[in-house]
């Protein structure tokens, strides 16, 4: 089940940048690529907890600002020699707005 909710205007997020959404589960980073795709990842690198929202966004990848781990934003998987994954969430744009699938919060409150 999905539960897309309106988060912000797309233009509030810089191209090749990110903004953070606060949730009861911790912060989620919403990324915007150079060609206006959006991705949502937990804002915590599995390596040492670095804020991925502060990383450099290149193509559909982001590099953690603390120790340079690189993640594919679509899957959350670490790239190259590093192993691990960061939780990813569904996000999309509609009419210049960014929508985030908030089903993860519902599941939690249901549990």
């Amino acid at each position: 089940m999905t539960d897309f909710i309106d988060i912000a205007a797309l233009d509030d997020i810089p191209r090749q940048g990110a903004r953070v959404v606060k949730t009861p589960l911790g912060c989620i980073a919403i990324f915007r690529t150079a060609d206006d795709q959006v991705f949502a990842l937990e804002d915590r690198c599995p390596h040492k907890g670095g804020p991925l929202s502060e990383g450099i966004v290149h193509g559909s990848q982001v590099t953690c600002p603390l120790h340079g781990w690189v993640f594919d934003m679509a899957t959350g998987l670490a790239q190259g020699a590093d192993e691990g994954a960061v939780r990813s969430f569904a996000a999309r744009t509609e009419g210049g707005r960014v929508l985030l699938d908030a089903a993860f919060m519902a599941r939690r409150s249901a549990a």
Partner: peptide
């Protein structure tokens, strides 16, 4: 600051 705060919505 954060772009949105969903902690309130969950509450």
């Amino acid at each position: 600051a954060p772009i949105a705060d969903l902690t309130l919505r969950a509450a």
